[in-house]
Write a protein that binds this DNA or RNA. Structure first.
Length: 264
DNA sequence: TCGCTTGTTGATGG
DNA sequence: GCCATCAACAAGCG
């Protein structure tokens, strides 16, 4: 399930192996996943341009073309199952929804479950027209900004952190991991957060994101809550208590009733 | 066959 | 406007 770390992994992949190459053509295998243009229009717009350094905001990836100034941009969302593949052997995957044929490589977007997709943005158009309003990126977020984003909100903490308008990039697994490490209940009211809790949430957000980005995904080792969530009887890696599974903010939520005070 | 899962949008109601 | 809840979407999985 692509969350921020998976998208960041794809950003680095494109930066290292596809950026700087010229677009020779495009191939659209699934036109339904292409928004904002037609397959032919995409080819006309991109052919001859150079792929610039990709950018990421939350779970969105921007594939910017450039020749001096920013040119047309592809806005990519992975949703549940999307991935980018760079092939430098000249053999692009045949089952890709959209493939950019580059000088010396092919950059292919695949998605098994056909959610997500690629939106075409003309040069100079704000990506927010596609992504909607997004909060600041969760990676590298400083504490005062987090506090400001939560200020005045009613409702639960997990719900707020999942809201991409509040903070961009966190998904279900990351939020459960962060709250467990910060020893804060998922349904903790945002308005009642103590300074100590906010500090802990911010600190653990940084720890979890840095380690996840390094791994290219949310790790699932024995010291991670994420490693327990699919077990039939998951136990807390800290205290060995049986973990609770319930629904918070409409999402399956795994948490430790012993360490995370409050209820979910 | 049914139900659950994911992220996001959009409808509905408080 | 803010927030919760629910349905919808796709498709794999049990």
């Amino acid at each position: 399930m692509p969350e921020l770390p998976d998208v960041e992994h794809h950003r680095r992949l494109v930066a290292e192996r596809a950026a700087g190459r010229r677009v020779l053509g495009v191939r659209v295998g699934d036109p339904a996943l292409l928004e904002g243009t037609t397959p032919a229009g995409l080819g006309r717009s991109l052919t001859g341009r150079t792929l610039a350094a990709p950018r990421r905001h939350g779970k969105w990836l921007l594939l910017v073309t450039a020749d001096g100034a920013d040119g047309p941009t592809l806005v990519v969302h992975f949703r549940m199952s999307g991935e980018l593949v760079v092939d430098e052997d000249g053999a692009a995957p045949g089952d890709a929804a959209v493939t950019l044929l580059l000088e010396g490589a092919a950059l292919a977007y695949r998605t098994r479950r056909r959610l997500g997709g690629i939106s075409y943005l003309r040069a100079g158009v704000d990506p927010a027209t596609v992504t909607g309003p997004l909060g600041p990126d969760a990676l590298g977020l400083d504490r005062s900004t987090l506090a400001a984003r939560l200020e005045g909100r009613r409702g639960g903490l997990k719900s707020a952190l999942l809201n991409q308008r509040v903070v961009a990039g966190l998904g279900n697994e990351l939020v459960d991991e962060i709250l467990w490490r910060a020893r804060t209940a998922p349904d903790q009211a945002v308005g009642d957060l103590t300074h100590a809790q906010l500090r802990a949430v911010h600190r653990e957000m940084g720890v979890v994101l840095r380690q996840s980005v390094r791994a290219g995904r949310v790790p699932s080792g024995p010291t991670w809550l994420n490693g327990q969530r699919s077990q039939p009887h998951p136990r807390c890696p800290h205290c060995d208590a049986l973990l609770e599974r319930s629904r918070v903010a409409g999402r399956t939520t795994v948490w430790c009733p012993h360490e995370q005070s409050g209820r979910a």
